[in-house]
Simulated assay, not measured.
Amino acid sequence: MEKRRDIEYEVESTLNSLDGAQRAEPGEFFFTRLQARMRQSGATDAWERFISIITRPSVAITGIALVLMLNAGLALTQLRPSQERSEQAMLQQAFADEYQLGIVTYYEYEKTEP
């Protein structure tokens, strides 16, 4: 029984503590400061964050180095003649020589008389 009285006393004291409660009011210039903060946080959109990450020196130097290495690798593979390319060029030249595809003139045709 004593426990029940303690609980009732606690409930009653809690309800009595709310008697002097008033509605909470915001401080002066609260809405102005809130609007300014919202504008400030909205200004950093996705593009600005992306640009801020890319312009970091470590990311920029790594990106430039990667582009230069890819460019050098492609240049080296294009400069080195491969065996397959040279064979293909020889076959095309032999085909063109066989059928005289390299010479296109209209004056070499003979006129046949009927």
Score class of each variant (00 low, 15 high):
48 E>G: 10
19 D>F: 05
47 W>H: 12
36 A>T: 04
57 P>H: 00
10 E>K: 15
34 L>W: 03
67 V>E: 03
13 S>F: 05
61 I>N: 04
42 G>Q: 02
26 P>G: 01
30 F>A: 02
22 Q>N: 06
32 T>F: 08
67 V>F: 08
22 Q>L: 03
55 T>C: 12
47 W>S: 12
24 A>H: 14
30 F>S: 04
64 I>E: 00
27 G>Y: 12
33 R>L: 02
38 M>D: 03
32 T>S: 10
46 A>N: 06
7 I>Q: 09
40 Q>P: 00
16 N>M: 05
17 S>A: 10
26 P>M: 00
45 D>K: 01
2 E>K: 13
46 A>I: 10
62 T>Q: 05
30 F>G: 00
37 R>M: 07
19 D>Q: 08
3 K>C: 04
50 F>P: 02
22 Q>G: 04
3 K>H: 11
13 S>P: 02
26 P>I: 00
26 P>C: 00
49 R>F: 09
10 E>G: 12
29 F>W: 13
44 T>V: 12
8 E>C: 11
2 E>C: 07
17 S>H: 09
27 G>N: 11
25 E>N: 11
16 N>S: 10
38 M>K: 06
21 A>W: 14
52 S>F: 07
51 I>L: 12
44 T>S: 07
33 R>I: 01
55 T>G: 09
65 A>Y: 01
3 K>F: 07
48 E>Q: 12
31 F>C: 07
50 F>T: 15
38 M>Y: 05
2 E>W: 07
54 I>C: 09
45 D>H: 06
54 I>K: 11
34 L>P: 05
55 T>D: 14
31 F>E: 15
7 I>H: 14
24 A>M: 09
67 V>N: 04
66 L>Q: 05
61 I>P: 01
62 T>A: 06
19 D>S: 06
57 P>Q: 03
59 V>H: 01
12 E>T: 15
20 G>R: 10
61 I>A: 10
43 A>N: 10
48 E>T: 13
38 M>V: 05
4 R>Q: 08
39 R>Y: 06
67 V>C: 03
8 E>S: 14
9 Y>F: 10
18 L>D: 02
20 G>C: 08
6 D>N: 13
13 S>V: 09
7 I>N: 05
12 E>Y: 14
36 A>L: 10
64 I>Y: 02
27 G>D: 12
66 L>W: 04
16 N>H: 08
54 I>D: 07
23 R>K: 14
37 R>W: 07
43 A>M: 09
54 I>L: 13
2 E>R: 11
38 M>S: 01
21 A>H: 14
42 G>H: 01
65 A>M: 05
30 F>M: 00
9 Y>M: 11
13 S>E: 15
17 S>E: 09
3 K>Y: 07
9 Y>N: 15
25 E>F: 07
61 I>K: 06
53 I>R: 14
28 E>W: 05
46 A>C: 06
14 T>K: 07
4 R>S: 04
38 M>W: 08
46 A>Q: 08
35 Q>A: 11
18 L>C: 06
4 R>K: 09
51 I>W: 12
27 G>L: 09
8 E>F: 10
48 E>N: 12
15 L>Y: 02
12 E>H: 14
48 E>L: 08
57 P>C: 00
30 F>Q: 00
67 V>S: 05
3 K>N: 15
44 T>N: 08
22 Q>I: 06
4 R>W: 02
15 L>V: 02
8 E>T: 14
24 A>R: 15
